[in-house]
């Protein structure tokens, strides 16, 4: 299982990459593996919208499961990944790259401290088995 070093993680299997005051959000390799074949992704927020911590930003569906993606921090949406609606399989094929979901301006950097680093997340995954 792939857990890139440079990202931050949540217990709900989301990843966050930080570039200055812009954060990019997606779901992890572990999450896509658990969901199996993703058939549908819907981003439920719009550009320019302000979201609070834990706001629902996307829904992912496979044939046997569905998962909500929630924003781990507060911010203002600057970009959403339009391509996922037509090519949901990107979440399976490239969860940390092409399958990013939303980008947003970080409004409260202190919220970042509660996120896990790669090692902590890898340990967390290993405790859950398969």
């Amino acid at each position: 299982m792939n857990v890139p070093e440079n990202l931050k993680y949540t217990h709900a299997d989301e990843w966050l990459s930080i570039d200055g005051n812009i954060a990019t959000l997606g779901v992890t390799d572990y999450a896509q593996d658990q969901l199996s074949d993703i058939v549908f992704v819907e981003i439920t927020v719009e550009k320019g919208e302000t979201v609070k911590k834990l706001a629902h930003v996307a829904t992912i569906e496979s044939v046997k499961a569905a998962a909500d993606v929630n924003s781990p921090i507060s911010g203002k949406i600057t970009d959403i990944n339009e391509s996922l609606s037509n090519t949901p399989e990107l979440v399976n094929n490239d969860p940390f790259g092409q399958a990013w979901m939303v980008k947003f301006e970080i409004t409260d950097p202190s919220e970042l401290t509660s996120l896990m680093d790669a090692k902590a997340y890898a340990d967390y995954c290993s405790t859950r088995g398969h």
Partner: peptide, 13 residues
């Protein structure tokens, strides 16, 4: 098809 949206999987959602 699209059964992942249904109550037995999504429950309260």
């Amino acid at each position: 098809t699209l059964t992942a949206r249904e109550q037995h999987i999504r429950r309260e959602k």
